[in-house]
Amino acid sequence: MTDAKNEILRVEGLKKYFGSSGAVLHAVDDVNFSINEGATLGVVGESGCGKSTMGRTILRLHEPTEGKVFFKGENIVDYDKKQMKALRKEMQIIFQDPFASLNPRMSISETIIEPLIIQGVYDKKDKAGLQKRVRELMDLVGLAERLINTYPHELDGGRRQRIGIARALALNPKFIVCDEPVSALDVSIQAQILNLMQDLQDELGLTYMFITHDLSVVKHFANDIAVMYLGQLVEKAPAELLFKNPLHPYTKALLSAIPVPDPDYKMERILLQGEITSPINPEPGCRFAKRCPLATAECSGQDLVLREVEPEHFVTCRLVQ
């Protein structure tokens, strides 16, 4: 797939099923991809397609049912508790809802200090060192120093999200899963936070896995985009290529739904008909077949894998030559 030399994360056959006997929900089903160091992979898909679960499973906040996650060449699924704790310094997560992701009983400084103490980067008693680091991080994410002792409920969504980012950056991670970090924010603040994240990436050389349901957000932000549908990746390509030449019928429908800020523009929306396949005990075959305008009988019955149809461009759909 990609140059193995500067690859930071590779996911192989990752599966996460919920529930045991009878009804098994296939939240993430056999996902394969890799991310290069310093790059951004955008993961897009509709609500409930397993994007967030995938992000959390990669960080082992959920235990994967099956599959391997290689971080810097090592399979972290085999890591024990102690190794995992050490690894958390390198992989972090930014959450979707800045109102739920901060402990309401902790001030900004306490929230940012927390990872530093847990990981033993600073000693609990080293007040001066901790304060210095907190100020550094607050400055880095653009929070005014006077807010250092305020509590989350006193701040607006944008500032809270900055705290979340500062907490994620506190340990100098290499890789960050961004779980819809801007979808809970106002549009004006979305842009600020996205710019901030981009600046931070340039400055600190971060690698992002950027989960979102908003294609326009990842268009300019991501190097590669992976489209997810019901727990599976259906298409993956460099951002520009995907927008120029979408191949999977689902991707085409998604792209056609992006609003264009021009009242005279006639949108040719592809409206999907039919019901979403249930992710509980799904039948083998293309999961999109029930809603796909091009589907034939051969689309069901056999599981599909990502095929490279043109350089760097992967798609599952069997109708694409």
């Binding site: 958390r88 972090q92 959450f95 979707q96 992701s101 927390e114 990872p115 979340g164």
Partner: peptide
């Protein structure tokens, strides 16, 4: 089940 508990797990608490 709040996200801040998950955030704490993510930093290794």
């Amino acid at each position: 089940d709040q996200e801040f508990i998950e955030a704490a797990r993510a930093v290794g608490a």
